[in-house]
């Protein structure tokens, strides 16, 4: 293995650590701000993975949009809303902590075990990385044959916004 390959493995390990640790911090932390910091860490890790897959543009966009904009938005949302009080559900269906942990573990481990078993039984051959895709090609692709998907994504965002505004707006009114 050449020097570069060792470096690549090291970088992969580092990014993996960032993603997993950040994810755990986001889920396990009781403090919303700490959860957010964990989320940001994960997003940085994902950006690193994009770099590793020679897609620097996507990586930069990941940092710019998710770390830069979305996280700040969530931060503001946390600051502007009061901490939720939280009522227990009507079903009384909150399982015990142990059961909850076990259920979460089972759900998260299922895909991991399936994929792990596949990789152990039959290691897929390594795919050669394509050279970096030019930005113009990417742009033409998104506005040419996939223009419709571009429009549809905007509908998704619109629905999300409309729904959130609707529920949030009314909630304030009824209080």
């Amino acid at each position: 293995m050449s020097m570069m390959e060792y470096l690549a493995y090291a970088a992969f390990g580092l990014y993996l650590f960032l993603i997993v640790a950040g994810g755990l911090a986001a889920v396990l932390s009781k403090n919303l701000i700490r959860s957010l910091v964990g989320l940001i860490m994960t997003l940085f890790g994902v950006a690193g993975m994009y770099f590793l897959m020679s897609a620097p543009f996507i990586a930069l966009m990941q940092i710019l949009i998710y770390v830069g904009a979305v996280s700040v938005l969530i931060f503001f949302a946390i600051m502007l809303t009061r901490a939720p009080g939280g009522e227990s559900g009507i079903e009384g269906s909150t399982p015990k902590a142990l059961k909850r942990g076990l259920l979460a573990l089972a759900t998260a481990l299922m895909p991991a075990v399936i994929l792990g078993a596949i990789i152990i039984r039959k290691t897929p051959e390594t795919l050669p990385l394509k050279p970096e895709t030019a930005l113009t090609v990417l742009g033409e692709f998104l506005t040419g044959p996939f223009a419709l998907s571009f429009e549809l994504i905007s509908v998704v965002l619109f629905v999300a916004m409309a729904g959130a505004v609707l529920l949030g707006f009314e909630r304030r009114k009824s209080e």
Partner: peptide, 22 residues
């Protein structure tokens, strides 16, 4: 891609609709 986008448009509107009687 169309499958995923259609599914998301449907699901996201349903989140708000299901919680509509808030």
């Amino acid at each position: 891609a169309a499958l995923f986008l259609g599914l998301e448009i449907l699901s996201v509107s349903l989140y708000a609709l299901i919680a509509y009687t808030r």
